[in-house]
Design a binder for these strands. Structure first.
Lengths: 222, 222
DNA sequence: CGCGTCATTGATGTGCATCAAGTGGTGTGG
DNA sequence: CCACACCACTTGATGCACATCAATGACGCG
């Protein structure tokens, strides 16, 4: 929570986020339909959020890593509207939302921070809508990988190497593609010398080229 | 703003949203990159929000009507990240965001309302992501029409008749389809006796059937 | 070490995009 | 008031990107 707070304020904040919760890989932090009470700040581990459509198909709406907040969708109707599932063993801070509200009435910077977290999620989803609405398979995957590695880098990890915590199917669901298409696109990137893929280990060899794929509409390689 | 406020509180709220602004059809309420200062509550008229991707294509991210709030995306970086364009002559309430923040620190119900508005937008975008990620053309258009008519109905308009304020191209952009596909899908719906289309006037003849198209994955008519 | 899960790769199919032509409604200026 | 021009829309023909179906291969866990 990188915000400008006094020591005393930080202490008060700590008091309400003292509760921790561990989530095993494959287990849900919360599920759609459950009563909403708290936001969760991820301390360690990696999550996906996914929701089921009317007909039963389900769709991954996002991947979250350490430092990010999940549960924002539950505020509006006091019910969670999606599932949050740990993709590796994880630990979260439980932040009872009414306590957050109380405290943010007193601590100016916290109020602003809460607004920003919500707004940031809206902006993130705009860019996903853009991805799903206008991009081709290669552009989608390139954008996804660049986003992942950038977020990891901001957390002190490598700028070029990462471990994909999700399956090809989960990536595909998030990107609006089938798992075979994801796999084929990885292979094509590898042939072009853009990345090196071994299972879930990924090394990015040409960051600029990936960026160019995202920026250029017609870059399908032919 | 349907929230439980005392008369005195409503008065204080009115004081900060007193400013009005008229927007002519085709004009922008705000544009991407502009400094964010206020949220806008639509009093009359109809808007689209759209953003440009890296390569210059642009994409409609939503349509907003009376009673809805635009500008939420600007909070996080104090910059608007999309354009809001009036599709018919419109009038909005200007709500300076710092004033909203101040007041919501004092008025409990307002704070909660702000949180809910932000969260609702997140949930709405989840369902658009689901639409773009998993649905076929007919399902997308059916879901879109049902959503539109439902929101209009909540505002006292007909449950079965509406005027489309946007072009086929704008619908297509929002739904991740080309304008020709939107047009063809309308024609197919008309053939099947689900709707009656004359220009932008639309009459829904079989609401249930449209709902079934959204609910059923394989309902492509063959 | 063997089984189940996840991933890769190939062959084929299809839904939507693209390209192209034509229609109709609207608004403007003569 | 009508003629013309423009724009939104419709409809048809064709192509392509991705889905689907199917078989095989590689880990990793019990």
């Amino acid at each position: 929570m990188p915000i400008g707070l006094s020591a005393a304020e930080v202490e008060r904040l700590d008091a309400i986020v003292s509760a921790r919760r561990k989530v095993k890989r494959g287990a849900a932090l919360f599920r759609s339909g459950q009563r909403f009470e708290s936001l969760y700040a991820i301390r360690t581990g990696f999550f996906k959020t996914c929701m089921a459509s009317a007909d039963g198909r389900d769709h991954v709406t996002g991947f979250q890593m350490a430092g990010e907040i999940v549960g924002l969708d539950g505020i509006v109707n006091e019910r969670h509207t999606c599932d949050a599932v740990a993709l590796e063993d994880a630990e979260v801070c439980v932040m009872p939302f009414d306590r957050v509200g109380e405290l943010s009435r007193e601590i100016n910077a916290l109020q602003h921070h809460v607004h920003r977290v919500l707004s940031r999620e809206i902006v993130r989803e705009h860019s996903v809508m853009l991805l799903l609405g206008t991009m081709r398979a290669e552009e989608r995957l390139a954008a996804f990988l660049l986003n992942l590695v950038q977020r990891l880098h901001a957390r002190g990890f490598s700028r070029t190497e990462l471990v994909l915590r999700m399956t090809r199917e989960e990536m595909g669901s998030y990107l609006g593609l089938k798992l075979e298409t994801v796999s084929r696109t990885f292979s094509r990137f590898a042939e072009l010398g853009l990345v090196e893929v071994r299972q879930r280990h990924l090394r990015i060899l040409d960051l600029q080229a990936l960026q160019r794929i995202v920026d250029n509409p017609q870059s399908s390689g032919h």
